[in-house]
Design a binder for these strands. Structure first.
Lengths: 211, 211
DNA sequence: TTAATTTACTTAACACCGTTAAGTTTGTTA
DNA sequence: TAACAAACTTAACGGTGTTAAGTAAATTAA
């Protein structure tokens, strides 16, 4: 079984190499601008070889999608120890925006790019699990906030989606370069400033007694 | 001068036809999926003819971009008569989301798609003017809100950008199909629900006396 | 040890894309 | 009627994702 296992290992290695090269390239030029031929050239294989390891370009997309969610969950895991749920919510917002700024192309892939996210959501999919872990962390934090008297009367799931939307809006306008409407002066660290504003808004909506 | 003017009129007509066909096609299949060749086929001209009327595909992009901003400003114009600035702000948010839902592909083009929005911002550009009119409406509304005691101590421009971000986030998650994380039950009219939540948050952040 | 077979990979091609250079048709002017 | 300019087309370049068919090497079986 040594030969078979060696072969399997080698196959796994090449698969990983393709994925890593794909990641490198799309970090440099974005996913849309990265072609199968580009990847093939860099790993010194013919383009068709890639199709022996991935069904199509979407398959590579999904693999990187999963990696992205694993990465963002790393950002979040560091915040699990924050005891106060409202503080944790604020920290999550900041971490999310940091993730987006530090991994723009990943963010693009995960939340902006148009792609068959279909055939997803099946239980078999690890990606869905990672995605739900991230969103679940947000939902649970918000549920704890509500238990503590914040956001009274609001639906946790819809509120979680709304908070996500708010920070996502900041990130996607930043990444897709729609920030030119604001003056040069305010444009520096605009995403961070907008995130701070969101946090301010969330803080102000609560009676002083809570804070 | 009758001949020359007729020719000029005809040229203008074909230009308009190209643009209208482009609009039709990208409304059906999205901008990225609409090719010069598709447009050419539908208007029964050779693909190269289009290049006599538009420099390149980006040029068509920009023309449609302008149309989109004219359209969203129509949505906004109906709200100019709303006297109370805070009510107007709420109405703007709702109108913005309605625009996005009713004109998904336009919205995509204007605020999501990656494209050389560069070489923009020059004063010569009508598009920039339409864009600034829309954002200006939001900024002015927020300034009025601040004068009335809302959002005390906040920077109007950054706040305007933040509010825009918040509703844009909702729209872009909806348009790019990232809403599957929420349960089936809440998924109906999710964009509207999230918009309502944003409005609730904005309302709650103010002392009762103001409302 | 040699023949058969499986595995891993490549070549060549298809149908598309945006774009351009060169050529053709058409209508207007001299 | 000849010259010219405008409007439009043909053919091509270099790129894309993807597939069918072919090759070379490694492994298995005789």
């Amino acid at each position: 079984m040594t030969i078979a296992s060696r072969k399997e290992r080698q196959k796994e290695e090449l698969r990983t190499k393709i994925l890593q090269t794909a990641k490198e390239l799309f970090m440099e030029h974005g996913f849309e601008q990265t072609s199968i031929r580009n990847i093939a050239e860099r790993i010194e294989y013919s383009p068709t070889t890639i199709y022996l390891y991935f069904k199509d370009k979407d398959d590579i997309f999904h693999a990187l999608h999963l990696e992205g969610f694993r990465l963002i969950n790393q950002y979040f895991r560091a915040l699990e120890h924050v005891a106060d749920p409202f503080e944790r919510l604020k920290a999550i917002s900041r971490a999310y925006i940091n993730f987006a700024i530090e991994n723009g192309e990943f963010y693009d892939l995960m939340f902006i790019i148009r792609s068959p996210i279909n055939a997803l959501k099946k239980e078999d999919d690890a990606k869905w699990e990672e995605g739900m872990r991230a969103f679940g962390f947000l939902i649970n934090t918000i549920k704890e906030c509500i238990q503590k008297g914040y956001f009274t009367g609001m639906d946790p799931e819809i509120l979680a989606f709304t908070v996500w939307s708010m920070v996502h809006g900041v990130c996607s306008l930043e990444i897709r370069n729609r920030c030119d409407v604001v003056s040069e002066l305010n444009r520096e660290n605009l995403a961070t400033k907008a995130c701070d504003t969101i946090i301010q808004i969330l803080e102000r909506m609560h009676p002083k007694s809570l804070q």
